[in-house]
Design a protein around this nucleic acid. Sequence first.
DNA 1: TGCTTAGTCGAACGTTCGTTCGGAAACTTT
DNA 2: AAAGTTTCCGAACGAACGTTCGACTAAGCA
Lengths: 221, 221
Amino acid sequence: MAPRTPNGRDTEGKLQLILRHAAQIFAAQGYASTSIRDISRATGLPLSSLYYYFESKQKLLYLIQIHAFTSILEELERRLNVTTEPLERLSVFIRNHILYFLTHPAEMKVLAHEEDALEEPFKRQVAAIKRRYYGLARGIFEELSRQGRTNGLNARIAVLSLYGMMNWVYKWHNPKVDPRAEELAETMARIFLHGVLNERDRQSERWEAERPALEKAGSSD
Amino acid sequence: MAPRTPNGRDTEGKLQLILRHAAQIFAAQGYASTSIRDISRATGLPLSSLYYYFESKQKLLYLIQIHAFTSILEELERRLNVTTEPLERLSVFIRNHILYFLTHPAEMKVLAHEEDALEEPFKRQVAAIKRRYYGLARGIFEELSRQGRTNGLNARIAVLSLYGMMNWVYKWHNPKVDPRAEELAETMARIFLHGVLNERDRQSERWEAERPALEKAGSSD
DNA sequence: TGCTTAGTCGAACGTTCGTTCGGAAACTTT
DNA sequence: AAAGTTTCCGAACGAACGTTCGACTAAGCA
């Protein structure tokens, strides 16, 4: 925490500070309409000093996106280890996503909104980690399908729909009015996993983490 | 169609041509990173000539957004007139949205992606029509709730989730791989209205427009 | 103490931006 | 044919952009 690096000037901490401020401004104004001078103003650092910490505006966006994606993926993989039950795993996925979204709104907005702003050296790398993230959810969904527990929907469409439902949150979530992460995650999990309509046996289902793993009882489960 | 306006120069048609090209470029590069010169290049019209048709870049974006929103809303209100059954109406809403989305991908991307790019004289007006659109879906959902046919979810969250699911489509839909509008709309209607899990009576449900109106069986009507 | 390296920063670079202006050209009305 | 109106457009405006440069100060090491 203190500047205990060889040099007593905490260079790494300053980069993080720049990244934090830059994420805020990118989120508020958009990448393309943010100037390096805006970031200079927000951080209090002179324009030219910024270029000691990152070599281009593109690289700055890249650093923000990679950092956010790496964090959310690490956290997710940690949490997914608690169970192999696909229903629970999907629920964990949703909760993890929403939780990260609401605790890091600026970073997540940049991730969701500035997908195409990166150009080719960087674009590829962010696309790779994104594919890994997407593939994780899709894998879980397909496992669920293999067990005959879905209604046979196209996995790609289903998972991308879920993804959209969650990623759109940055456009409307208002902490003053809307539920916190836990409740929001549970609501979306219900919509996605179960649906909105009154069904006969919906009441019996629970996807909480506390719930003991499903017993296989017959047919498909 | 022919230039039968008082002047034989088809000014209105030229504006439409500019709007079409501009929507394409805004969709491809983003509003902020598109220059008027880009639009000049795409339309073949000289830079300064463009300003005869719109008075500022902001106004250009405004014209595109208002036009798209007005079209989709008009079409929707027309289609909603066929039934008062809330389940069918929600289904019509979803189908209309997706259909417009996939037949006007550029306009819809601009609508979904450049929400915050407009500034104050224009922002308010687009926000107003957007609120009307959102309110329509929410009204239908609440009617459904009043009839006791939902599982009691927060209407705001539910409708915004649906909205997100549909609006995210522009980020991933690939005509070469993904289903056409009708099928996509039905899939999303199923996810939203019904859910993804195997339930006992899911098979009996249909939300097609052809289906005769539900008979009231009890509860609220 | 001096030498080297890491970090700072004012000033300026070339380019691109949105927009304007004034007059030329095209068409309509008398 | 003259007058009036609408449409067109080359050239230029000041402002803002991302990035660079080179001189500077402060820290770490001998």
